[in-house]
Amino acid sequence: MGQYILRRLLINIPVLLGVTVLVFTFIALAPGDPVSAYLSPEQGANPALREAMRRELGLDQPLPVRYSRWLSRVLQGDLGYRAVGGRPVDEVVGRALVNSIVLMGTALSIGCLVGIPLGIISALRQYSTLDFTLTTIAFLGISSPSFLLGLGGLYVFGLRLGWFPIAGMVTPGQPFSLLDFLHHLALPAMILGFAYIAILMRYTRSSMLEVIHSAYITTARAKGLRERTVVIVHAFRSALIPVITVIGLALPDMIGGAVITETVFSWPGMGSLFVEGVAGRDYPLIMGVNLVVAASVLLANLLTDLAYAAADPRIRYG
């Protein structure tokens, strides 16, 4: 197991380096001169001053030199400063990251708590009316785009019915209260959670169906185990692999935020921060978000592989 973890880590290093090269190249290609951000318009008109600034910032160096300098700073956790407002990118990203994890974590939890049990029930009652209804709902849930559901939900439940606040994480101007926060969290979390419910239900159902008729399940029943033990301990454990896959694929969303849905609900997470950066062409911020998201995708893949190995002893790594 230890050796397996080490090998997976080593495979990921060149990919991660490739990611940094790609992100750096992106930004090096970006139009506009970063020097302008440091000079007032009058100073900017002076070519000598621009040249001095350029030398001071190291922009006169060839690209590979600039890349290696940038990389060594990034490895120390320094993502530079925002082009707009000049605040450190790592600080801004850190705060948005927490907000995104709260929102997406709640959505994924709703998905697991509702989707997995419904998937199990649906598999146990295959071809019943309940199964058909749940399967159809799941199919609709997977196919409907969450940002459009978000717009519809915001309009119906936020504006027409007035059940939920329409924007942000807390009511501005009020002291923080948990109830108020949960009230703001509820609608976006439920809308994002719906997609997870649908996906998890479908995967749980089909992987349960694959094992539910196997001989070992009959054996478990025959030796007099309670139905609950058979289903949860014997069947569900073997059906866990696809469920892990889905959760693993959902982890990067948690870091990157649901870009457009967050914007719909003005949720101050990574998604809205990123959209703000793109609209304002804030390249250091765009670069920072890309790096954090890409690194977290790699990490999530790694965790998923480890979870496979933990869940299924049949998986051999040689």
């Binding site: 990919v15 490739g18 990611v19 790609l22 992106f26 290609l29 970006a30 139009p31 990067p252 969303d253 990157g256 870009v259 457009i260 990123f274 959209v275 950066g277 793109v278 062409r281 390249y283 765009i286 978000v289 890309n290 998201v293 890409a294 995708v297 790699l298």
Partner: peptide, 18 residues
Amino acid sequence: DIVMCFPLIVLLLSVVAI
């Protein structure tokens, strides 16, 4: 592998920014 490290929407928005 490298392209698939980025969620599609993030990559797309980055290219649009440029």
